[in-house]
């Protein structure tokens, strides 16, 4: 029972770490892209539309690493964590 409890705690911590650490990179990157896009629009306001679409595309691709860590966290919680919680509740009766 203790083993199951420790495993659940480890999974919860792991999922939290996966999202929080994995969110740092994309957040910095997306902010950088947005800042550069603002600079570009300030320099060339007539190109605003094409800059905006390029910016959103770049941010979307930057975001995929963050999405991967989210997927890992979801996998940890729903595929490994939830069955363990069910087994622990069964053991507790």
């Amino acid at each position: 029972m203790l083993e199951a409890a420790i495993a659940i705690a480890a999974i919860a911590i792991g999922a939290g770490l996966a999202v929080s650490i994995g969110a740092i990179g994309p957040a910095v990157g997306e902010g950088y892209v947005a800042g550069k896009a603002v600079e570009a629009i300030a320099r060339q306001p007539e190109a605003e539309n094409s800059i905006r679409t390029t910016m959103i595309l770049g941010q979307a691709i930057t975001e995929s690493t963050g999405i991967y860590s989210l997927a890992i966290a979801l996998l940890l919680i729903f595929s490994f964590g939830m069955p363990l919680v069910g087994r622990l509740l069964e053991l507790l009766g």
């Binding site: 979307a60 995929s64 999405i67 989210l70 979801l74």
Partner: peptide, 13 residues
Amino acid sequence: LSHAFRLYGNLFG
């Protein structure tokens, strides 16, 4: 994979 996970992750998250 990333194309599928991006939409799913954003909506589900």
